[in-house]
Computed example of a mutant assay.
Amino acid sequence: MTEIHLDLDVLSGLQDVMEDEYPTLLDTFLDDSQGRIEALRQARDDAKTLGCIAHSFKGSSGNLGAVRLAQLCQRLETASAEPAVTGLGELVDEIDHEFALVKPLYESERQRFPI
């Protein structure tokens, strides 16, 4: 099964709905996501905090079509609630890596619209 990093149909639908505010939406997502990545790194040993950040990041990623990023955040959210918490640091690393993959795709999308 092929992993979907970015669902372009979701972005197209958002562009239709958001119209002139679409570039602002992309800017906001990129800024917020960078902050969430930093927060995940800092909270890497705090399961409760990781779960909260992952929950929020899952929603925004899913809404903006970052399919695999949303899936990884779901896995982190679920794992952080387990009684025997293990592997959270590895999931944080996977999320960090996935964001590094999709970030330039969003930046490229954003460049299609003049400032």
Results as ranks from 00 to 15, higher is better:
residue 57 F to Q: 01
residue 110 R to P: 15
residue 109 E to M: 03
residue 97 H to L: 10
residue 26 L to F: 06
residue 86 T to A: 13
residue 48 K to F: 10
residue 4 I to E: 02
residue 56 S to C: 01
residue 84 A to Y: 13
residue 19 E to M: 12
residue 50 L to N: 05
residue 41 R to I: 09
residue 104 P to W: 10
residue 61 S to C: 00
residue 29 F to E: 03
residue 56 S to R: 07
residue 16 D to W: 07
residue 6 L to H: 06
residue 110 R to S: 12
residue 1 M to G: 12
residue 8 L to I: 10
residue 96 D to G: 02
residue 12 S to F: 03
residue 9 D to M: 01
residue 24 T to A: 15
residue 19 E to W: 02
residue 37 I to C: 05
residue 107 E to L: 12
residue 89 G to R: 04
residue 8 L to A: 12
residue 10 V to M: 09
residue 89 G to A: 07
residue 72 L to Y: 06
residue 75 R to P: 01
residue 54 A to E: 02
residue 70 A to N: 03
residue 8 L to R: 15
residue 91 L to A: 06
residue 76 L to F: 11
residue 66 A to C: 05
residue 78 T to N: 11
residue 80 S to W: 08
residue 82 E to M: 12
residue 55 H to D: 01
residue 66 A to F: 03
residue 102 V to G: 07
residue 79 A to K: 09
residue 14 L to K: 05
residue 25 L to W: 07
residue 102 V to K: 05
residue 102 V to H: 03
residue 22 Y to P: 04
residue 18 M to A: 14
residue 101 L to Y: 01
residue 102 V to S: 03
residue 41 R to M: 11
residue 53 I to C: 08
residue 29 F to I: 01
residue 72 L to V: 01
residue 33 S to P: 12
residue 70 A to P: 00
residue 112 R to Y: 02
residue 26 L to I: 14
residue 58 K to V: 00
residue 40 L to S: 03
residue 103 K to C: 13
residue 112 R to S: 06
residue 97 H to S: 10
residue 41 R to K: 13
residue 103 K to A: 12
residue 61 S to W: 03
residue 9 D to I: 00
residue 40 L to G: 05
residue 25 L to C: 13
residue 27 D to M: 11
residue 70 A to S: 14
residue 80 S to H: 09
residue 110 R to I: 14
residue 42 Q to H: 11
residue 92 V to W: 04
residue 32 D to L: 14
residue 61 S to P: 00
residue 61 S to M: 00
residue 54 A to D: 02
residue 95 I to N: 13
residue 107 E to F: 04
residue 33 S to T: 03
residue 31 D to R: 15
residue 41 R to T: 10
residue 112 R to F: 04
residue 44 R to S: 14
residue 67 V to N: 04
residue 10 V to W: 09
residue 93 D to T: 10
residue 71 Q to E: 13
residue 40 L to Y: 01
residue 104 P to D: 08
residue 101 L to W: 00
residue 76 L to I: 01
residue 15 Q to W: 05
residue 72 L to I: 00
residue 43 A to V: 06
residue 25 L to H: 05
residue 50 L to F: 09
residue 95 I to Y: 13
residue 93 D to K: 01
